[in-house]
């Protein structure tokens, strides 16, 4: 690998996610995963027999979880939760 390539590799590899971000996102993902199935999703799964419980629950909860994430970010602007 040439010198410039090593420098590119090193520069791109420097950023790391904030520890607080790691924890916040994991909590949001767990909540999303644990959200009970909505009745419609449960019916759909039972009907198709192809959909998997976790993915249906997650898909059903996806918008809510993403919304919660942005709400969290609005309340705690970067730096205040680091």
């Amino acid at each position: 690998m040439e010198v410039y390539e090593t420098m590119v590799q090193e520069a791109l590899a420097r950023p790391v996610p904030r520890p607080a971000f790691f924890d916040e996102l994991l909590v949001a993902l767990r909540e999303m995963w644990e959200t009970p199935l909505l009745p419609e999703a449960r019916d759909e799964r039972a009907h198709s027999g192809l959909l998997v419980a976790g993915s249906v629950a997650a898909a059903a909860a996806g918008v809510g979880a993403a919304g919660a994430w942005y709400g969290f970010r609005k309340l705690h602007r970067r730096g205040s939760v680091a």
């Binding site: 993902l29 999303m32 995963w33 959909l51 998997v52 976790g54 993915s55 997650a58 996806g62």
Partner: peptide
């Protein structure tokens, strides 16, 4: 979020 919701 996509990775978990599309895991299936």
């Amino acid at each position: 979020f996509k990775a978990i919701s599309s895991a299936g």
